[in-house]
């Protein structure tokens, strides 16, 4: 991979829901300060995969995971690692905006509080900074104490991004962040992602191939639990190696 510094690495990962083999021997590197897109038809395991990267899979009972996942040199699956610690460093934005039923300010400050930050000034600064970074500050600066549930869907999603940024993660995972948004909100989120990659390493799951083409540097194509092909986005979309990748991106199935 062009000798770029690698931020996260999945090595020989297999994953089972009960008996169902959901991911098969996945090897994938996520380059630092780049956007890596993961595409594939529904049920191919792309969301499952991205949720392994901050151990969110552990919230689902009756699953088995083998293989290694590294964050820098840290083996994040090791039993002596606290999943909360991993999640502080690897943030996640979900498919549907999921703000807490609290006000805007509290939504952002929550992550800081649970991670033991008590300094009020620091919390306030971080809240403002993250709202600015996620391009929502101008829309909410006068109503920080309004309920977050009153924001529009697109605003809620940017608020969720701000919520992640507040605890200063190193990696941001996006699980189909625009699936429930209108085209204008989608465009805003995409611009934001391109802006954020300067400071963060980003992985995004999407079923929208144009989106992957627009914003990602690398793309992996998943099919039925296999990673079929992983390469520079340009290559995947212009000259894929595998015929199945070509079928998918040209819309012949999926």
């Amino acid at each position: 991979m062009d000798n770029l510094p690698i931020k996260m690495r999945a090595h020989g990962v297999d994953f089972f829901y009960g008996q169902h083999h959901a991911l098969k021997n996945i090897n994938l590197d996520i380059a630092k300060n780049h956007v890596t897109a993961i595409i594939g038809p529904s049920g191919c395991g792309k969301s499952t995969f991205i949720r392994l990267l901050n151990r969110m899979n552990e919230m689902v009972p009756n699953t088995t995971l083998t293989g290694k996942i590294y964050l820098d040199c840290l083996d994040i699956l090791s039993p002596c690692i606290d999943p909360a610690e991993v999640r502080r460093r690897v943030g996640m934005v979900f498919q549907k905006p999921n703000p807490f039923p609290k006000n805007i300010f509290e939504n952002i400050s929550y992550g800081l509080e649970v991670n033991g930050i008590k300094n009020k000034q620091l919390i306030e600064d971080r809240v403002v900074e993250s709202l600015k970074k996620s391009a929502i500050w101008d829309e909410v600066k006068d109503r920080l104490h309004d309920s977050a549930l009153r924001l529009s869907g697109g605003q809620q999603q940017r608020l969720c991004i701000a919520r992640c940024l507040a605890i200063q993660p190193e990696v941001l995972l996006f699980d189909e962040p625009c699936a429930s948004l209108d085209p204008i909100s989608t465009r805003k989120i995409e611009e934001l992602i391109l802006e954020l990659k300067k400071d963060y390493t980003i992985a995004i799951v999407t079923h929208n191939m144009q989106q992957a083409a627009r914003i990602s540097d690398y793309t992996g194509f998943f099919l039925l639990g296999d990673l079929i092909e992983f390469d520079k986005t340009e290559k995947i979309f212009k000259a894929p190696h595998d015929s199945r990748t070509e079928d998918y991106i040209t819309g012949r199935f999926g």
Binding site: E85, C164, I167
Partner: peptide
């Protein structure tokens, strides 16, 4: 369930 996930994803126990 989604807001429980959101909280856990921020490193909350």
């Amino acid at each position: 369930h989604s807001i429980r996930e959101a909280s856990m994803a921020l490193g909350a126990t």
